[in-house]
Amino acid sequence: MPHIVCEPCNNCKYTDCVVVCPVECFYEGETMLYIHPDECIDCEACVPECPVEAIFHEDNIPDEWKNYIEINAEKSQDAPVITEKKEPLADS
């Protein structure tokens, strides 16, 4: 079961999580990051690194954010992989 990036990442896009990912399964969208569900190895290294607590194990996602399971699966297909820390969005 993979981890999923949820609503708190939207419009902030902190990238602290991507530098600790051992399998490079983060993808950069315009306003947030996504985790590719087939590439995530469930190591949990990214979870404590997220300053806005946006990353959840698929089994523990709050009900109001369950749609992010599908969003991550879809968006990670088209977005470029991200492996280096970048500046967050200005609105964060």
Rank of each mutant, 00 (worst) to 15 (best):
I35E: 01
D16Q: 13
A45S: 15
V5D: 03
V5G: 07
Y68I: 10
I4L: 03
E84M: 06
Y27R: 08
I71C: 08
T15V: 02
H57V: 02
F26R: 12
E39P: 04
V52C: 15
I41R: 15
I41V: 12
P48V: 09
I71H: 05
E84W: 03
E64D: 11
P2L: 00
H3V: 07
V47D: 07
A45L: 13
N11C: 10
P22T: 03
V19K: 12
K66G: 06
P88T: 13
K85C: 06
I41Q: 14
I69C: 06
P37V: 00
Y34R: 00
I4G: 00
V81H: 11
V19C: 14
P62Y: 08
D63Y: 02
F56N: 09
I71T: 02
C50I: 03
W65A: 05
E74H: 09
L33P: 01
I61E: 05
E49V: 01
K13R: 15
Y34H: 06
E49F: 01
V81T: 11
F56Q: 06
V5S: 05
E74F: 05
M1N: 15
N67A: 14
K85N: 10
H57K: 08
E30C: 04
A73P: 08
I41M: 13
C43Y: 09
I55S: 03
P48F: 07
V52D: 09
P80T: 10
C43W: 09
K86T: 02
N10L: 11
D42L: 15
C25E: 05
D16M: 06
E30Q: 09
P62N: 11
P2D: 01
C46V: 02
E30T: 12
V23T: 13
K75Y: 04
Y68A: 13
V5T: 04
E70Q: 09
C50P: 00
N11G: 07
V18E: 08
N10G: 04
S92A: 15
V19Y: 12
P8Y: 08
M1E: 13
H3R: 10
P48L: 04
Q77Y: 03
K13A: 14
K13S: 14
H36R: 13
F26Q: 05
P2G: 08
K66V: 15
C43S: 11
N10V: 09
P88I: 12
V20Q: 08
S76E: 01
E39A: 12
Y68D: 07
E87W: 08
C21A: 08
E7V: 07
